[in-house]
């Protein structure tokens, strides 16, 4: 007899997988990942992908793992040294 998949459980599993994948993608240690996802699921209360992901993002901002405003005074990553300009003009 074909086992039917509980749609509610399937939805929850998908949301959980998505949230876990997100925190894995930030190179956070696995224990912390589980903790963050659990807390965001609890905060969201309703099993909705956007709500859970939003709660997860708020949690990450609150803990300083993600930076909310990239235009802030916080140092951004730079891949070049400070400029030290000088002109280079072609001769005839």
């Amino acid at each position: 007899m074909k086992k039917e998949i509980d749609p509610v459980l399937a939805t929850s599993a998908r949301i959980c997988d998505r949230a876990l994948l997100y925190v894995y993608g930030l190179n956070i240690p696995p224990i912390n990942c589980l903790e963050l996802v659990l807390e965001s699921l609890q905060r969201a209360q309703v099993q909705s992908m956007p709500l859970v992901m939003d709660e997860l993002r708020k949690l990450l901002f609150a803990r300083g793992i993600l930076r909310k405003d990239l235009n802030s005074d916080a140092p951004i990553l730079t891949s070049t040294p400070p400029l030290n300009r000088r002109s280079m003009i072609s001769e005839k």
């Binding site: 997100y22 925190v23 993608g25 930030l26 190179n27 993600l66 951004i76 990553l77 891949s79």
Partner: peptide
């Protein structure tokens, strides 16, 4: 667009704000 650490890297390097 998908992988969070690469998204963070790219947006942090973005020159034009």
């Amino acid at each position: 667009l998908v992988i969070p650490r690469i998204f963070t890297l790219h947006t942090a390097l973005a020159y034009n704000r």
